[in-house]
Design a protein around this nucleic acid. Sequence first.
DNA 1: AACGACCGCAACCGCCGATGA
DNA 2: TTCATCGGCGGTTGCGGTCGT
Length: 217
Amino acid sequence: MDKKTCNSQDFQDPEVRKGPWTMEEDLILINYIANHGEGVWNSLARSAGLKRTGKSCRLRWLNYLRPDVRRGNITPEEQLLIMELHAKWGNRWSKIAKHLPGRTDNEIKNYWRTRIQKHVKQAETFDAGQSSEHHIYPTNTAHVPGPVDHYHPVSETYSSIAYPGNDPPSTSQASCANHPTIENCYADNFPAPFSTESNVSVWSMEDLWSMQLLNGD
DNA sequence: AACGACCGCAACCGCCGATGA
DNA sequence: TTCATCGGCGGTTGCGGTCGT
């Protein structure tokens, strides 16, 4: 049998819940960690009464519920730092995230793939068609991504990379793009938190934490 | 107004290394 | 040394929202 399927943490328990976290689950997790601290995620999940894997709890906590997590609105400075560090280390998202306080590896990874990689690919395909010319950028975008050079495994760096310095992320896509934070984005939907039927969490972290404080021991 | 295409993000999956019995 | 368990990481996917026609 495959080792993975034998792993208790990966075992397909029919009782294990998957998919989006509910507000109740979030509150349980926040309360439990507030009272007992984080760590030993599998036993935490069991002790807290959550029908989730330890992995799922850890991910939810680190990427969303942690009080110091900052979400949305990557600043131009952060974007530049991400580009520099990615040029240096490649897809070492957790390593990159350590240099961006409050940012998670998952967010940086998503940001890179959805915002930056897209433009890099555009530039690459364009450069392929314009190989004799340098720094001629697509006209269908305001962004001017530079060419990506190749990774040197020995030095753990890319040879050179020319990214736009203060090119802000596109704001034309997400509905929340003009909001400073996703919390404010959620706040704009109040006082009618949606998805009430599925009870999927769409609450601001401030709300969750204030609820936690109210419920606090 | 309706609908399909596209995009962003949360969450899951698979793998690997560390640790302890 | 071997095995089980856990934590962490990077890659991938599915869903919901937005945009364009």
